[in-house]
Write a protein that binds this DNA or RNA. Structure first.
Length: 271
DNA sequence: CGCTGACCCTGACGGC
DNA sequence: TGCCGTCAGGGTCAGC
């Protein structure tokens, strides 16, 4: 489900929910593990805690409470949903935060690729791999990307999705960014010019910010914690459009597989 | 270093 | 109706 824009949309909606309703009465759970065992000892410490902040780095969320902090990853199908105390829970509702108002903030994740863990103390420790550049950070420039790609054989699309290089870009936005940059996803990373790297960096920011503005991409089931669907899927120019006409030149959009993931591009616009 | 495939898990969808 | 294969926005790991 979630790439950087969707995680950021969730972060903002959580922030808004907690601004109005900052106290946790208690936390309940329906199973003891998602991808990893749930931090039940931390959950118990959240009785009567207050939410201090909700932060994002890469595709991770950190929820800081007055008594402890959690790190949350949405995996493919994870999400939050705010509901009334009397509303029924659903099959894959795993963790329930009962708020001061009596409403419930529910974490739902059918595939259970997501996780919640005790905050490990620093962003560098949330992943076993060192996290790459934050794409919205001005410090990530065409020159930086060029040096990150130097000598590498891996296809540029795989490099863009490699969280050790740049974080937050997943399968949808990698295809969309490369289309807008005129670069074929299969191009060897080391063969991408400085000028193209600069375009990729600029288009990354444009696409990600535009997607955030539009509430993310809702293809199957993504929604904010306030249950609003996104609309950026209407702005997808190549993702999911195999066989359809390119919006720029009418050539048929192609699909292939790179790094085990579906990849979409226009054979005419992208070289 | 880098690529491939497998794996974690459930659900939706199309073909027969 | 059901069964089967395929695919899905992520990340990690072993093996070559």
């Amino acid at each position: 489900m979630p790439e950087l824009p969707e995680v950021e949309v969730v972060r903002r909606s959580l922030e808004e929910i907690f601004r109005a309703d900052p106290e946790i009465k208690k936390v309940a759970w329906n199973r003891a593990d998602l991808r990893f065992p749930l931090p039940l000892a931390i959950f118990r410490r959240l009785n009567r805690a207050r939410v201090i902040a909700v932060e994002r780095r890469a595709k991770y969320l950190r929820i800081e409470f007055s008594t402890a902090s959690l790190v949350v990853h949405l995996g493919m199908t994870g999400g939050f949903r705010l509901q009334e105390a009397t509303d029924e829970l659903r099959k894959h509702d795993h963790v329930i935060f009962e708020l001061g108002s009596g409403r419930r903030l529910v974490f739902e994740d059918p595939r259970r690729f997501g996780f919640m863990l005790r905050w490990p103390g620093s962003w560098e420790s949330v992943s076993s791999q060192p996290l790459g550049s934050e794409p919205l950070d001005p410090a990530w420039t065409g020159e930086v990307l060029k040096s990150q790609l130097r000598g590498r054989q891996t296809p540029i699309k795989c490099a863009l999705m490699d969280q050790r290089i740049v974080v937050g870009i997943g399968n949808i936005y990698a295809s969309e960014i490369l289309f807008r940059s005129g670069v074929r996803p299969q191009r060897r990373s080391g063969r991408v010019s400085l000028q193209e790297c600069t375009k990729i960096v600029q288009n990354s920011r444009l696409v990600l910010l535009d997607a955030i503005r539009q509430g993310g991409s809702t293809i199957r089931d993504f929604h904010s914690a306030g249950e609003e669907a996104g609309s950026f899927q209407e702005s997808h120019r190549v993702y999911g459009r195999a066989g359809k006409k390119c919006v720029v030149c009418s050539t048929h959009i192609k699909r292939s597989v790179l790094g085990g993931r579906s990849t979409f591009w226009c054979p005419s616009c992208q070289t």
